[in-house]
């Protein structure tokens, strides 16, 4: 579609609604936007999640973000599937959804990353798949202002959209253990691995910063709607930054103009 709204522009929900709500067991609903482009459905479900978390309808227990859907978990003794689905549709209809883009109250983070053979095992693959140089892959990443769409497993920030010239596929065989701090891409999304664990995303760098620490309150400084820029830094910066908790002022880029 060519009617992609500018950031901050308001579009009435009636343009993108048509909300599908399917029972997922006796205590959950799978809610998604039934029509529109992939991007519209993704940003629509993100907005819907924000609306729900903001208004917290009666009986709502938790919300799990998927790629283009939300799982709404509820107390089946407090509300039924039908009642909650109706509440969700009304809530959505009574609000204008903001256009795609960062939240107006969001914070901005600059995240330094180091790129070398061992930190970026998939960089050459990504470059080959996109048909550009490794340097160009990193340049596209650095040039993109990313919005955190959701916190995935173990609070991993999932971000879009990286201005790559194409889509990056996932690893054919997922890695069983990827180190924390790994900066990873798939499709036109980026994510940072907060704790060691398996992943099928392609690893193209690593940040020395600690992005999630359960001893901090809250355990991450970022939240959905915040924006991120990556900055490739020399390996010599690693030691100085290693293990520091990511905050908005952890790393600053000198003004370029």
């Amino acid at each position: 579609m060519s009617t992609h709204p500018a950031p901050g522009q308001l579009i009435p929900l009636s343009d993108i609604q048509d909300i599908k709500a399917v029972p997922f067991g006796d205590s959950a609903l799978m809610v998604s936007i039934a029509s529109g482009t992939v991007e519209e459905r993704q940003s629509g479900s993100r907005k819907l999640r924000e609306v729900l978390q903001d208004m917290r309808p009666h009986g709502l227990l938790d919300v799990v973000a998927g790629v283009d859907s939300i799982l709404v978990e509820f107390d089946c003794l407090a509300v039924s599937h039908g009642q909650l689905a109706q509440t969700i549709r009304l809530a959505a209809a009574s609000r204008s959804f903001e256009g795609d883009g960062p939240s107006p109250t969001g914070q901005h983070f600059v995240i330094p990353m180091v790129v070398n053979e061992s930190f970026a095992p998939d960089l050459a693959d990504v470059a080959a798949e996109l048909g550009i140089s490794k340097e160009a892959v990193l340049a596209h990443l650095e040039a993109s202002t990313l919005t955190i769409n959701l916190l995935a497993s173990a609070m991993a920030p999932m971000m879009g959209r990286v201005e790559f010239p194409g889509q990056v596929s996932r690893c054919r065989e997922p890695r069983t253990n990827v180190d924390p701090g790994s900066v990873m891409v798939a499709g036109t999304n980026a994510i940072i691995q907060p704790f060691p664990g398996p992943t099928g995303w392609k690893v193209i760098g690593r940040t020395p910063l600690t992005i999630c620490d359960i001893r901090e309150e809250p355990p991450t400084s970022f939240k959905p709607g915040d924006t991120v820029r990556f900055k490739v830094v020399p390996e010599s910066d690693w030691e100085r930054l290693d293990g520091q908790f990511l905050r908005t002022d952890s790393y600053t880029i000198e003004e370029e103009h």
Binding site: F24, V63, V64, A65, G66, V67, D68, S69, I70, L71
Partner: peptide, 10 residues
């Protein structure tokens, strides 16, 4: 099937 939330007991 794209990744989506799954409830306990699925």
């Amino acid at each position: 099937i794209v990744s989506h939330g799954v409830p306990i007991g699925a």
